[in-house]
Design a protein around this nucleic acid. Structure first.
Length: 386
DNA sequence: ACCTGGTCCCGGGCTCGGTTTT
DNA sequence: AAAACCGAGCCCGGGACCAGGT
């Protein structure tokens, strides 16, 4: 979206009539180029990376902290900037100074996508190379060699490995193993929620992120809503309320606000009412799985979840009932047995909760109903747009 | 004993770059 | 130059078996 368009929308000349002007600014899965309230942590990161600015190898790092504490936000922003400065090309263009140290290449890789060796090599390679990397028709070992060749001929590479050790992504030690098998000049910067004592890897530097403190989260949310919503769409008290409820988790807070805004938008309201906010908060379960994990699933699995959250209460009362309804949906072309298996798999990785019914009628094991553990309002909206 | 829900696993086939043959 | 073939990862279907209830 260009600047003129943004300004016009703020002035109210845009196509939308509701409270949302920029959904991206509100979204818990999109990171801003200038994160709010994490200045000291950014400095700590830069301190640790300091050797890179003088031409030597920076230390390996482990950045850990709870969900929604800004780890990804800070690292994606920082690496995006550093990548723009990184490599030889940039240093030639800017070599006005006498001594111009060459920065390493910086690459950000999301292990939610790069959850196999093949995809990890693929994503690192496409981040540091200008040439397109095939995603089919080439062996893993072949890809590893190509990556090794690319790296050995160039500078060092610093790779951020985000979302380690989630149910569907590799552990820190596995990812490290995959990378070091290719080249030892690739420096890993891992991000995860587990404490450093339980990751089975010894990083040279370890940095901890704490939950956002209440007033910092309020500031963050205020910044986000000021560019994402129309003026006065949400009150300061409402922002404070969400912040308090979210207990320092920026992901949950943003999901709740965006859910509330979408609900207000549906009724063409000029502001977010108390009822809208309640519904927005209600749409975010506690504890909540990051929306990013849902959006990293394959298309067919997202479709299945979309159908699931669109079901009526009785259809969701048991896994079998849900299976039948979902398999019967016109947009789903999977067999019932596959639908059933995938539903159980999704429950296994924590995206759904199985709540066993206490009912005593009927023979056999009591059925369980499936409860989503992710922001449902937001997911429906985002998936529905596609 | 019997029934239904839940878990685990593997063969087969699809898609799509790369490679060889025509 | 075009067509046929190969093989990589990945998705799908389904069956065997285990768990928990009457």
């Amino acid at each position: 979206m260009n600047i003129d368009e943004r300004i016009e929308r703020r002035l109210g000349y845009g196509t939308t009539t509701g409270v949302v002007v920029d959904a991206d600014a509100l979204s818990p899965v999109s990171h801003r180029s200038s994160p709010v309230g994490r200045g000291p942590d950014l400095e700590r990161l830069l301190d640790a990376l300091d050797p890179a600015f003088t031409g030597s190898l920076p230390p390996s790092m482990y950045i850990h902290g709870p969900k929604g504490s800004g780890k990804s936000a800070v690292v994606t922003a920082l690496f995006a900037r550093l990548a723009a400065h990184g490599g030889q090309k940039q240093s030639i263009q800017t070599s006005t100074r006498a001594v111009d140290p060459v920065l390493p290449e910086f690459a950000y890789v999301d292990l939610r996508h790069a959850h196999t060796r093949f995809r990890l090599y693929h994503d690192v390679l496409s981040a540091i190379s200008d040439e397109p990397v095939p995603d089919h028709g080439i062996g893993t070992e072949e890809l590893a060699e190509e990556l090794a060749d690319t790296v050995s001929g160039r500078m060092d590479v610093v790779v951020a490995l985000d979302h380690t050790a989630e149910p569907a992504s590799p552990s820190v030690s596995t990812a490290i193993e995959w990378l070091s098998a290719v080249n030892t000049r690739i420096v890993p910067v891992c991000l995860g929620r587990e404490p450093p004592t339980s990751i089975n890897w010894d990083p040279e530097v370890s940095i901890e992120f704490d939950r956002y403190r209440h007033h910092v989260l309020v500031e963050l949310l205020t910044t986000r809503v000021s560019s994402g919503l129309t003026q006065h769409a949400i009150t300061h008290d409402q922002v404070r309320e969400v912040s308090e409820w979210a207990e320092g988790d920026a992901h949950d807070a943003l999901a709740a606000i965006m859910g509330a805004a979408l609900h207000a938008e549906q009724s063409d309201a000029p502001t977010i009412s108390t009822a809208d906010l309640d519904i927005g908060i209600e749409g975010v379960p506690k504890p909540c799985v990051s929306l990013g994990r849902v959006l990293a699933l394959s298309e067919s699995r997202q479709r299945l979840l979309y159908e699931l959250v669109s079901l009526s209460e009785p259809d969701r009362a048991s896994v079998n009932a849900a299976t039948e309804s979902i398999a019967a949906a016109p947009a789903v072309d999977l067999s019932p047995s596959t639908v059933r298996r995938i539903l159980y798999e999704l429950a296994d990785v924590g995206l759904l909760d199985r709540v066993t019914a206490p009912r005593s009628k009927g023979k056999g094991r009591p059925p369980s109903r499936l409860v989503p553990r992710f922001p449902t309002l937001l997911f429906r909206e985002l998936f529905g747009q596609q």
